[in-house]
């Protein structure tokens, strides 16, 4: 597998928009061509080589691995719309990492800022630290958010994760989010997304959920009144066939959207 290593030389004063850092753009380019790629810095354009040391060898898109070292909390849009290959980020990363990605894998060994994996269409995003708000959410005004793919966050995530996520039974697409804990409005306007939380979540989980599955292995600070208790279960089966063992109380909802609904919220008993 071909590997390219980028190392941040200096902290940018303003956010750097680096949507070119993706296996799709790097594939089959020479190191000099990669160094000459344009990044957006405020209203200016800068060269990738001005901010990053570039080493390694390129190859075909699906066999390309990009490793980035340094504190990238001011570098946005890494891996935007990528379709294949792999990115490993060793450090914190800025907003919109892996947004609208279709395939491949991104690993962040650190924390991610807001909009990580927004409107994901496929592939896998793994974050070992915490993530900001709007993880895997739809962008403003979009009614179809995350459609497929998996996001795994070890730590906690912020508010309004998986906003407007859409599954498709016919196309066998099941957007999934695993996280260690979450803020308020987890899975708001959920249309078939699956969310599994290891720890506690804040208020209004599953607000306006039309259908979908949310499993919480911890506490919910305030359950919405429109969720009704169905019973207790000792195992939850997710749409992708995965089974989660443990004692859960099963709630149906959100009943403020539909009187009869197969939306489900499981909270650890």
């Amino acid at each position: 597998m071909a590997e390219i290593t980028l190392k941040l030389k200096k902290q940018p004063e303003f956010p750097l928009e680096a949507d070119v850092i993706s296996p799709d753009t790097f594939a089959d380019k020479s190191l000099n061509e990669i160094k000459a790629l344009e990044l957006f810095f405020g209203n200016q354009k800068v060269k990738l080589g001005d901010y990053f040391e570039v080493k390694g060898k390129t190859g075909k898109v699906d066999q390309l691995k990009i490793v980035i070292d340094g504190d990238l909390s001011k570098v946005k849009r890494i891996g935007e719309k990528m379709t294949a290959g792999e990115i490993v980020i060793n450090g914190n990363v800025g907003m919109h990492v892996g947004n609208q990605m279709k395939g491949g894998k991104i690993t962040v060994n650190g924390n991610a800022d807001d909009w990580a994996g927004a409107m994901l269409k496929g592939g896998e995003l793994e974050i070992t630290g915490d993530a900001g708000h709007y993880v895997g959410s739809a962008y403003r005004g979009f009614w179809k958010g995350m459609k497929d793919g998996v996001i795994k966050v070890k730590g906690k995530i912020g508010n309004e994760a998986m906003l407007w996520s859409r599954s498709s039974k016919g196309a066998n697409k099941w957007p999934m989010l695993y996280c260690g804990g979450a803020g308020s409005f987890l899975g708001v306007h959920n249309h078939g997304g699956t969310i599994v939380v290891e720890g506690d979540v804040d208020r209004c989980t599953g607000a306006d959920q039309a259908w979908g599955t949310i499993v919480i292995n911890g506490k919910v600070s305030r359950k919405l009144p429109s969720y009704r208790k169905v019973g207790e279960v000792s195992e939850v089966e997710l749409p992708n066939g995965e089974k989660i063992k443990g004692k859960f109380i099963e709630y149906s909802g959100d009943h403020s959207v539909k009187k009869e609904t197969n939306g489900r919220l499981y909270i650890a008993a």
Binding site: R203, C204, A207, P225, R228, K259
Partner: peptide
Amino acid sequence: YELFNAIRALLREVELDQ
């Protein structure tokens, strides 16, 4: 938000648990 939520559920003639 919870109050809106309860009103919307009651409007659909759903009985609340609380």
